[in-house]
Design a protein around this nucleic acid. Structure first.
Length: 571
RNA sequence: CGGGGCGUAGCGCAGCUUGGUAGCGCGCACGGUUCGGGACCGUGAGGUCGGAGGUUCAAAUCCUCUCGCCCCGACCA
């Protein structure tokens, strides 16, 4: 491709609405443009990267025996009604009425549609196992789209569905996808962790997330520094903690202290001065669990795990009470709620119970209590309800957990017969007996991965694509106003193209600085600079985007040197 | 949905407090000088000031409503 004819609208200034590196760079380097909140255009460069990722995904899926198909995105509502997700999905489902008033929606994921296909076409165990996948646009009216391509309302997903005759066979399919995903994520050049995760609204028994490590990620995960344990903090449990009751002989008398304007743990700690720290305080949160009001207590430096709390209380979810509700039920402003004299159910984390002479809200505005002790001043049901965090013991070995931020790039599930039961998808076994088909589903956020790769591969100057996904492998940059560099660069470019190298020729009549800046911004892995200075010695320069220094190469050898450098980058 | 912020030329912004000719930088077009890390000079094109209503002789500016976008939270494969 000749740059002078390419549609690569780069921008010098940082777009106002972008804050994350991948978002900023995709806009600045001309890979994408926004059309609406969570709705993006992929420009030619972005589309080339998309196709590179899709190619890797297809190769690995096909190698695993999965078969690609294409289902519609515009769907009659009946299938989601059949499974119950027409209601369950709520406002996230983008609903449409046709001219006759019929109810339709755009597909957020396709368990129902593929299950319908399979129940119509698959009747016998002889037709199983089966793994069907597609790569297409998905639609979810997210409550809060954000960060460019990381969370969109329209996005491209690879979704695969496996169908098996038994739980054991389904687990084998799941394991195969697990392995396939490892190969895909490795080929994409990503640093990632496979973590245990909550299976959420999709319904299912077992699931694992492929989390791309990035400080800007939305998800928090913990991973052991010694074994392979890793989990989303949504479900991670810290390893054994003592939960020891404080030593009664060291308890100090309770003190009530006026503490105006201390609504957060930080403010409380600041108020009590240098001796206080968050681990010495109790965080009290009022939750609605079904019809019941529950006070949940964790240590001030810990975060509560709402999923864990809900499960142990035996409810679907717990909802943090609104400011008004807290005031109504406790007669206390947010920030001053506490366990002492609280009338109602109190659940406390073991680490909170162990705190000796803690600082806690007094249950009265604007006071806090000093020297609060479990057993003496309040009594709680002790349940592990906090999120795991850095420094916690590993639940599986003697190692220590580390906290990471991650971007959910893929998620695989064992679904069991959740959908096949509801939709009556069955097969006949050797004896002619009917059984529900056992399913699994496997997603990869393809457009999200474009952003995730950039989050891991960039510097101050721009993107640094791994070769396997770069829109072009080489950019040939003639420098200077003379004819020779352009002539020579064109010759090199044409030879590279003929040899199957994906090359971009910067034939624009721009000054060198502009071309270098753009080349770095675009993130092309290799740059060949052709200038009259070098040509006098018969050399051109070869530079890797990920290295600071360039290398002089005799012009006659540049094609083979380029191919060698590409091979080295491919690893 | 709760909290905060922002909508003025393609992009980034000033102007608004105190109503009175719509500005700057980048980009774009043309001419000239330049040419190894986002050059310089000159000329020029380009704006219903997000939208609607109101106050006023007069609204980018004041008031009301509304739409959109971003961030934090809630929520969410």
């Amino acid at each position: 491709m000749r740059y002078s004819r390419a549609f690569i609208p780069t921008v010098k200034e940082v777009p106002k609405d972008a804050t994350m590196p991948s978002h900023i760079l995709m806009l600045r380097a001309g890979y994408a443009r926004m059309v609406g909140a969570g709705i993006y255009e992929l420009l030619p460069l972005g589309t080339r990267v998309l196709h590179k990722i899709e190619k890797i995904v297809r190769e690995e899926m096909d190698a695993a025996g999965a078969q690609e198909l294409l289902m519609p995105t515009f769907l009659p509502g009946e299938y989601f009604k059949e499974s119950g997700r027409w209601e369950l999905y709520g406002p996230t489902l983008l609903r449409i009425k046709d001219r006759k008033g019929g109810e339709y929606h755009l597909g957020p994921t396709h368990e129902e549609i593929v299950t319908d296909l399979v129940r119509r076409e698959v009747k016998s165990y002889r037709q199983l196992p089966l793994n069907l996948y597609q790569i297409q646009n998905k639609y979810r009216d997210e409550p809060r789209p954000r960060a460019g391509l990381l969370r969109c309302r329209e996005f491209i997903m690879k979704d695969a569905y496996s169908f098996d005759v038994s739980d054991e066979a389904a687990l084998a399919s799941y394991q195969q996808m697990h392995d396939t995903y490892h190969r895909i994520f490795q080929r994409l050049g990503l640093d990632y962790r496979v973590v245990e995760a909550d299976s959420g609204a999709i319904g299912g028994k077992q699931s694992a997330e492929f989390q791309v490590l990035a400080q800007t990620g939305e998800d928090s995960i913990v991973a052991c520094n010694e074994c392979d344990y890793a989990a989303n903090v949504e479900i991670a449990r810290p390893g054994p903690v003592t939960g020891a009751e404080p030593d009664a002989s060291q308890m100090l008398p309770l003190e009530r202290i006026e503490t105006p304007n201390t609504h957060t743990i930080e403010e409380v700690v600041a108020f009590f001065g240098p001796d206080a720290n968050a681990a010495h305080t109790l965080k009290s949160l009022v939750y609605l669990a079904g019809d019941e009001i529950v006070l949940a207590i964790v240590r001030g430096d810990h975060e509560i795990n709402e999923i864990s709390l809900a499960r142990q209380l035996g409810v679907d979810e717990v909802v943090l009470a609104s400011d008004a509700a807290v005031k109504e039920t406790t007669n206390t402003e947010i920030g001053f709620v506490g366990p002492v004299d609280f009338e109602g159910r109190i659940i406390a984390d073991p680490d909170a119970v162990s705190v000796l002479n803690a600082i806690a809200g007094a249950g009265e505005t604007p006071y806090h209590l000093k020297n609060v002790n479990h057993g003496r001043d309040y009594t709680a049901e002790v349940l592990s309800i906090r999120q795991a965090t850095s420094g916690d013991p590993c639940p599986k070995c003697s190692g220590t957990l580390e906290l990471y931020r991650g971007i959910e790039g893929g998620h695989i599930f064992v679904l069991g017969t959740h959908y096949s039961d509801r939709m009556n998808a069955t097969f006949l076994d050797e004896q002619g007996n009917s059984h529900p088909i056992v399913m699994g589903c496997y997603g990869i956020g393809v457009t999200r991965l474009i952003a995730a790769i950039i989050e891991q591969h960039h510097d101050e100057q721009g993107i640094r694509w791994p070769v396997h996904v770069a829109p072009y492998e080489v950019i040939v940059t003639p420098i200077g106003k003379d004819e020779e560099p352009l002539t020579k660069a064109t010759e090199i470019y044409e030879t590279l193209c003929a040899e199957g190298v994906e090359a971009l020729l910067d034939d624009r009549s721009e000054r060198p600085g502009v071309k270098f800046k753009d080349a770095d911004l675009l993130g092309i892995p290799l740059r060949i600079t052709v200038g009259s200075r070098g040509l006098k010695q018969g050399t051109v320069e070869l530079k890797k985007r990920i290295e600071a220094e360039s290398e002089d190469v005799p012009a006659v050898n540049i094609v083979s040197a380029t191919k060698a450098a590409l091979a080295a980058l491919r690893g």
